[in-house]
Nucleic acid binder design. Structure first.
Lengths: 193, 193
DNA sequence: AATTCAATACGAGACGGTTCGTAATGTTTA
DNA sequence: TAAACATTACGAACCGTCTCGTATTGAATT
């Protein structure tokens, strides 16, 4: 995703980059994603419009970069030796994000844009969704000594992220800690795995 | 939601209503929801702009009415006497919609708009989401003789619709018949209910 | 029963305003 | 000296409102 390093000419302004990301978060936080426009990002960040267009293909890509900056890129995959505690820890971390309004706003914005722009949807999956799936898949597969399994691992992954996204996007309910226990129960039942 | 029955004056044109819904479906089907505008709906349906604005508050409400028209309003809740077969039947019906590209496009459009417009999100939940939840809740509660349950019924409902919406909105994968069996298994395990 | 009248919906399209994404221009900086 | 920069202008599209003349309906009046 890194642009070819230009050895000649003026270097990219890191100040402008940060200003753009901050402005995007600021606008979404106060007025919502519907109010976000590249025009306004440029205005409120004190950056030229063309500068934004030069470095980000869409406003959603700005948001995605802002999100990755916020949640930190490398989330360690828990490895306690037991499936149940790994799972519990993974869910606890995931739901913690789901309780942070700033993060939720960004996630909702990205999901919305993915519906409207299939090219961005592809980038969103590759950059964000697949990483999270891979982490959970690792946990579920690591100590998978029960065979044959009536439910595919990929379906269990769908269940976890499905519940999370469904409640972020469709329902207005917040996450409670009981959900961690419930999902762990559901996924570690003998016949389920 | 029904407008005050006007005893006087010209009656609403059913032809125009149908033309608007058809145009919306057509536009979304060919160019996607991002290309949908009230201006274009009016143009392609041969209807006056004011006619659209008179009857629908937003373009998303047009889409929602088009969806309800497509999936039929009254879906009977299966009642075979056994939880497992009720569930299997409910899931089979639900996934059938999820395999119809025209329906999927509309669902994705509605979900996208719900992220951008909270007033519409409310109408969407009240008109569509809650009905589907209620149906599944009925099924799960009907023969619920196992107490205490470690997983709330509402969470089981979240699991089902979560997986469906997640795969419609976030992942590009299609539904296969195995999913019906898997979800039924997950939800009817002794300790889960 | 025939006519008039008021109320409302209709298609068409003009309107002023907003935002979009691109392009042109000159300045700044590595 | 090449590329990134901020600024400004541009045409296109869409927004929501409004007006025009016409069509359709039910109620009131002959």
């Amino acid at each position: 995703m890194e642009r070819q390093r230009a050895t000649r000419g003026r270097a990219r302004s890191e100040v402008s980059r940060q200003a753009v990301l901050a402005a995007a978060i600021q606008i979404i936080g106060t007025d919502g994603y519907a109010a976000l426009s590249i025009e306004r990002i440029a205005r409120e960040s004190g950056v030229g419009k063309q500068t934004v267009y030069r470095w980000w293909p869409t406003k959603a890509d700005v948001v995605m970069e802002a999100l990755l900056h916020k949640v930190e890129v490398n989330i360690p995959i828990p490895d306690t030796g037991a499936l149940e505690s790994d799972l519990r820890q993974f869910l606890t971390t995931s739901l913690r994000w789901g309780r942070m309004p700033q993060v939720v706003e960004l996630l909702r914005a990205l999901a919305a844009e993915a519906q409207l722009n299939s090219a961005f949807a592809e980038r969103f999956r590759a950059t964000f969704v697949d990483h999270r799936r891979a982490a959970l898949t690792t946990i579920l597969t690591r100590n998978d000594d029960r065979n044959p399994t009536p439910v595919r691992t990929s379906t269990l992954v769908d269940v976890v992220f499905g519940v999370i996204w469904y409640r972020l996007l469709i329902l207005p309910t917040e996450f409670d800690d009981t959900l961690v226990t419930e999902l762990t129960t559901l996924l570690t039942q003998p016949t389920a795995r």
